[in-house]
């Protein structure tokens, strides 16, 4: 059987049979790969700890008829422990890997940008560099931009008229001008628009300086935007606990 080797981020696992797991991974060169990891649920397994969600691994796989088979695994970055030690980080990281799993739809189609983005996002979460809610929202906006659904927070998403504008429509794709504004859409604060722009562009100085009210408003808009464009429910997004032990949300 032919083998191949790649760097991978473990997205999720499913139990299979007595002691095996089906592991879904996002790899650097082969895109999304689903493979069987044999015997990993046994306490004596040498690779079980490396095949956990959020682990970045160097993996060798056999090509199988339906699913590939994990042959060897080495750890590159063990994000799992740092993330599982903080419930807020765990819920945010789960939402990130579920998003990556859904955005990279087809298996074995290279998705290098999505891989890099997810690895950077997990690295930022595990390193507790910024508020976990900001990291999650930045990841979601950028992952959707890479997948072809880039939100517009300045120019009108419908007619392209330069902003700033006052209304936000998830259906239209971001900020909308007064002429294109559908009825019943949100009117976020200008600071929220600035925060969303900063998250999309990676302007962390602006994002870190934002207030809790605008973070909450931005999180709601990002959730609405992602759920609408993905057309499938992101189960974990509704369970994100944004109060991390390391980055408690500031009180107003």
């Amino acid at each position: 059987m032919p083998t191949y080797r790649d760097e991978a981020i473990v997205l999720r696992t499913h139990k299979l049979g007595e002691a095996d797991r089906i592991v879904t991974m996002l790899t650097r060169k082969h895109g999304k790969v689903r493979a069987v990891a044999k015997g990993v649920r046994r306490t004596s397994s040498r690779i079980g700890a490396r095949m956990e969600p959020f682990m970045v691994v160097d993996v060798q796989l056999y090509e199988g008829r339906n699913l590939d088979i994990v042959n060897q695994v080495e750890t590159i970055q063990p994000f799992a422990k740092a993330i599982a030690d903080d419930y807020g980080l765990f819920t945010a990281a789960t939402a990130m890997v579920e998003t990556a799993d859904k955005l990279v739809d087809h298996e074995k189609e290279p998705a290098l940008q999505q891989y890099r983005l997810l690895r950077g996002g997990l690295n930022s979460l595990a390193g507790r560099e910024h508020d976990l809610g900001l990291v999650l929202d930045a990841y979601l906006l950028r992952a959707f931009a890479v997948a072809g659904w880039a939100a517009s927070f300045d120019a009108c998403a419908t007619c392209g008229r330069p902003g700033p504008h006052r209304a936000f429509s998830a259906v239209a794709g971001g900020a909308v001008c007064e002429n294109d504004r559908p009825s019943g859409v949100a009117s976020p604060a200008p600071e929220t628009f600035r925060l969303l722009t900063a998250l999309l562009e990676g302007d962390w100085a602006t994002a870190d300086a934002s207030g809790p009210r605008h973070r909450r408003e931005a999180a709601g808009l990002v959730a609405a935007y992602t759920q609408f464009h993905l057309e499938r429910k992101l189960r974990s997004l509704g369970m994100v606990d944004r109060t991390s032990e390391s980055h408690p949300e500031e009180e107003e």
């Binding site: 956990e52 969600p53 959020f54 799992a80 422990k81 993330i83 599982a84 030690d85 903080d86 419930y87 765990f90 032990e245």
Partner: peptide, 14 residues
Amino acid sequence: PNIEGEATATYLAR
């Protein structure tokens, strides 16, 4: 001792 179990323990500890 897997990621879901650890996260559950972290939540309970909190």
